[in-house]
Design a protein around this nucleic acid. Sequence first.
DNA 1: CGCATTTGACCAGT
DNA 2: ACTGGTCAAATGCG
Length: 316
Amino acid sequence: MEQELLRGRDVANQLLQLLVHRSNNNDEQGLTLILPLAEDLVHQVLRSFTNTILLLNISNNSNNIDDAIFPIKDLSSSSSPSSCQKHEDLDEACKSFHTNNGRGRYKRKTTAPTWEKDNPILLEDGHAWRKYGQKKTMNSKYLRNYYRCSHKHDEGCPAMKHVQRIQENPPLYRTTYYGHHTCKNTNYYNNEESIILEHESKSSMFLSFNNNNNNIIPILRSTKQEAVELVIHDHHDDHSVATHHQSQLYDHYEVDLEYSRHNVAMLSSSSSSPSCTDDTTVHQFDNIYYYDFGWDLDFDGLACFDHHQDQITMIM
DNA sequence: CGCATTTGACCAGT
DNA sequence: ACTGGTCAAATGCG
């Protein structure tokens, strides 16, 4: 119950940050970008409440989850679940109670991966992972290793990943991520970890902007709890951190992230797909394209281009 | 001793 | 029946 409540509080904080940011950017593009995220966060908060109430009922009424009365109705589902088995939201909360001769039963995840990334070597990504299994898969001679966030139980962090070697020579490892970290990751900015940052992406900043020249949204959200201050000014300002160049073919943004100047993205002005530099690799997942920028200085970057909303999200 | 990893069994989805 | 995702006891390690 404590874990569920903590998770609910963390997600509510994320929602608050999102809404505060929204109130400072009164434009329609920003709204269309933020609404799906806000909706997702509200669902997570509701799930936390639901799980907590169920656990409360179980501890008060019965040791058997099937006998527990479920007094609230989940609006997202047409059925009115009265048991754990029938309620899809009750993922983690179910497992510890649905036992069979000491073995836990579980709900297999069916969600699409959040993103995936291929690397020539196994890299740290700055997060603490706990390995919970490995499996030989049919189409590969290499084992697939399964990890969940080390803060799954103390903070309810839902992030998971699996890593599998996909190529012998040159070696290539594919990491597939499920969900974002909601945990506080306090060691990320110390000196030791910053070395890792030079080689691997996925630090805290989610940069988001559309290709409307006058309307750059600097930050969408953060994967960590620390506030990240990065303001992108009008490109005519000499002190701006972002400059914008336009040609017939594409919009090209440069962002000066504190120390060095990076080419961030080239967005096609025809709204089809963004052009990329030569060292950019592209992955496609769930109708969203991920552009992996091989920057050679402080950051690697991952850009997500949503064709439906004609906007790009940078993950650095 | 306390934590993470290993490993075979269990389980859900197809 | 098969595949792969997850669990949890056994094991490893600092």
